[in-house]
Design a protein around this nucleic acid. Structure first.
Lengths: 336, 336
DNA sequence: TTGTACGCGTTATCAC
DNA sequence: GTGATAACGCGTACAA
């Protein structure tokens, strides 16, 4: 490993002069500077992150909480996309991103301890086990944090505009003549699920449609099988099928469609079905799925932007929703 | 921030004694040790990663190359799964995982420079632009590296057993009576695509089946549309449809199925279709897809194992395939 | 068993 | 414009 001392020796100057040259300080002659930089390049000098961070107390690093123990299954696709966009944005600003861990070498740490250990500038909570006690400690620590919808509520959150999406779905279905529109909600421990169900009720109410609680059912989870089960429950609780079904996720929608097919119904002839997310495969199923497209890239980027602003003290940390990202209605074959 | 000096002051001893207590050295009395540890906990002491790494020259960190500029689309799902498994394994051993970047603060670095800067113990190449010049420098640097199938060939590689998978597909199709079996290969710049096409030829040859080059077609990519296009080409080049189609990925298979449907063919009545990967959605399409399941978790874990072994000098770095992970044939509705 | 003193590679504060 | 020198927080020979 070549250090600034090696360079200093070769350049015939002191290490502090080298440091100044490399950090283009103003108090150094142009000639010296170029000379030193040339030598550094020649010798293959690479700075040492640890030494630099130790001296500057400045880490340029961001921790990412991304635990997959919690079995979010297909949904994961959404979060991966968000993380990608986030990573791209902050890396371009010169930050490095590291997964927050609970171990270092042979000893166990809490999330907060790990963050202090690494001296991260901020944390992006992507997915997490909300029941983890270690999490509360972290979110209350004062470290800049953002998250996207995942049920952690005491942290600045970037989220899709669920109300807008729900309104678009319902307006569209009603425009197409649907009277009885059911809603298969996501698990209500999820914030997004709560928002969508509230929006469903509110939009209908404002359109002077009476809310029929029998048309609302909560799925156990966001996945295919939960959707399938929910549909059977819906039918038995409602005593038949509605004109249309608004599902809280694409996977739920696909599960519901499968169940409907098993029961001999045709989509969209007998019943229209709409999902939420616009995951890749919705283009390719038959029928292809009408759905609300979430803008993963935008969400990731907005999260990054907000976190950087927090780090730079350009904004204050307020718990809850700080940004709603617009969604889009994608009309395909599952609605008539 | 509380340091070992703060603890030393409170405990009435020297900082080195504190250090010894915290690193459970053998040369310290039990009583002192427990006392110091208690004080450390009380004061909320957290070690400083940079100082420790600077002193020990030991980073306990692994870099991950995961660039998404290259538009691998749906395939990404596979790599995300592999990365998850990898991360879980190495974090459990106490390593932290950081995305390799090309910037730090405001200056640009090559991959290798970044790795030296961060002093990572090893690198896991998940996805990467193989044409990146910066990559060669890294792979030839001597830093421990592993990769999974992605076209980087001069590095130890963990990969699915493509031969076994291909053999299972072909044997199954032939058993079911298929005579003319076409192969839609992946893009041949991909190593897996090459392996699968070679296996296809070899297995048939060994079964005394004459290879008909007209039954082989290379898709431009691994995605849906490439599969669709490839199928049209196949038909025009072969002058009809074969008994069965073995596609190099599920997405290709689904694209081909879509094209077949457009042409009025029924699957599996008119033609059987088999994919490769076993991505989630293959369960839910209609017909659901017969495919080869790749074991993402096992691949990620084996990659981790191998990298750790390299880091610990328990094995030597040999370019090319170091481990083949078994695959499984999942029979669903797209074959008869 | 404990403490002293130094090194890890860098930046930053002063004198010069 | 340049160069000693002191941090930064920790680990570790070596001496006590």
């Amino acid at each position: 490993m070549v250090t600034i001392y090696d360079i200093a020796k070769k350049a015939g100057c002191s290490s502090s002069t080298v440091s100044k040259a490399l950090n283009n300080s103003s108090t150094i002659s142009k000639k010296r500077k170029e000379e030193i930089i040339a030598i550094a390049k020649l010798m293959g000098y690479v700075p040492n992150s640890n030494a630099r961070q130790l001296a500057t107390k400045n880490s340029w690093s961001i921790g990412v909480l991304f635990s997959e123990d919690m079995n979010i299954g297909l949904e994961h696709h959404f979060f991966s996309g968000v993380l990608e966009a986030f990573k791209t944005y902050v890396e371009d600003l010169g930050y490095e991103v590291t997964f927050v861990s609970k171990k270092v070498g042979h000893q166990s740490l809490s999330y907060l301890e790990w963050c202090k250990y690494k001296n991260v500038d901020g944390v992006f909570i992507v997915t997490v086990d909300v029941d983890d006690v270690s999490l509360k400690e972290l979110t209350e620590s004062g470290i800049p944090i953002v998250t996207v919808d995942n049920g952690v509520l005491n942290v600045p959150t970037i989220i899709s505009d669920n109300y807008q999406g729900t309104r678009m779905v319902l307006n569209y279905l009603r425009l197409k003549g649907a009277k009885k529109i059911a809603h298969i909600a996501g698990p209500l421990r999820s914030f997004a699920a709560q928002e969508r169900i509230e929006a469903y009720k509110d939009v209908l109410r404002k359109a002077d449609v009476e809310i029929d609680e029998k048309l609302i059912i909560e799925a156990n989870n966001y996945d295919f099988n939960s959707g399938k089960n929910a549909l059977y429950q819906l039918i038995s609780q409602y005593g038949g099928i509605p004109d249309a079904i608004y599902a809280a996720s694409d996977d739920i929608a696909l599960g519901a469609i499968r169940a409907l097919k098993e029961l001999g119904y045709k989509i969209p002839e007998d019943v229209s079905v709409v999902g939420f997310d616009n995951i890749e495969l919705t283009k390719y199923t038959s029928p292809s799925l009408t759905t609300i497209a979430q803008d993963k890239i935008r969400i990731g980027r907005e999260a990054a932007k907000h976190l950087i602003a927090l780090i730079n003290h350009e904004t204050e940390s307020v718990p809850g929703i700080v940004k709603r990202v617009p969604v889009e209605l994608v009309i395909r074959e599952s609605t008539k």
